[in-house]
Computed example of a mutant assay.
Amino acid sequence: MSISTDATNLDAAFLALADPTRRAILARLAHGEETVMQLAEPFAMTQPAISRHLKVLENAGLIVRRIQGAKRPCRLSSAGIETVDRWLAMLRDALAQNYDRLDGVLADMVENGEELK
C-alpha cells in the first residue's frame, strides 16, 4: 500500500470515527457480527439512516458487509482497523521517545545538582 493510499484511508477512517453514532456501531461490532436491523435497534433513527452510517464505515474500510439472503451482516474489517492502529502506534512510539528524552534531561539535572520545581 502506498503512502498516499494510507493517507486517504486514514482520512476516511478518522472522518468516519468523528461521528458518535458510527463509533457506537463499531463498539457493537467489536462483540461480533450483526445485521443492519440489529445495529439499528438501540438508536433513535431509521434503518436507512443507520445504513448511511454503515456505508460511511464501509467506504472508510472499517467494516465489511456480506450478503446472506435478504440480510447484510456487518463485521469489523481487520485491515481497516490495523491501518488506524499502525498510525496510532507511530504516535505512541513518538510519545514514548519524547518521554524518554525528558527522563534523560531530568536525570541529568538531578545528577548535576539542579533543583527541580
Rank of each mutant, 00 (worst) to 15 (best):
G69V: 04
D85V: 03
V36H: 05
L57I: 06
E58S: 14
T5W: 07
L76W: 06
G32N: 09
S4A: 14
H53L: 05
T5M: 12
R52H: 12
S78Y: 09
A27D: 13
R92K: 09
E58A: 14
Q68A: 15
Q97I: 01
V105K: 10
I67A: 15
G69D: 09
A94E: 13
I63K: 01
D100N: 09
Q47S: 08
I67V: 15
A44T: 06
N9G: 08
R101P: 00
I81F: 04
I3Q: 08
I3L: 15
I67W: 03
T35C: 05
R92C: 03
T8V: 11
S77R: 03
P20F: 06
L62R: 01
T35A: 11
R23K: 11
G69M: 07
A60D: 04
I67L: 07
M1P: 10
L88E: 02
A94P: 00
Q47E: 13
M37H: 14
L54Q: 10
A16V: 04
A12N: 14
D93Y: 06
S51C: 04
P48I: 01
V36G: 08
L91I: 12
R72I: 01
T8Y: 11
S51T: 00
D6S: 13
I67M: 08
V64Q: 12
V64H: 12
L102Q: 14
M1H: 07
E34V: 02
E82A: 15
R28G: 11
L39T: 05
L95A: 14
C74I: 02
A96T: 02
A7N: 10
W87G: 02
M1L: 13
A30Q: 12
A49N: 07
L91M: 12
R86Q: 15
P48C: 09
R101N: 08
I3R: 13
V105S: 11
D11P: 00
G104T: 10
D6P: 00
P42C: 11
S77T: 01
L102W: 12
D103V: 00
R75T: 10
A44Q: 02
R65H: 10
I67F: 05
T83R: 14
A27V: 03
I25Y: 06
E33F: 02
L39N: 05
L76T: 05
G69W: 07
M90F: 03
W87Y: 15
P20Q: 06
S77I: 01
H53S: 08
I25D: 05
A12P: 00
D103P: 00
R66Y: 05
A49W: 01
L57Q: 03
A44P: 02
A12M: 12
R52G: 05
L57P: 01
N98S: 13
P42V: 06
A24D: 13
T83S: 11
F43R: 07
L10P: 04
V36F: 07
R65K: 15
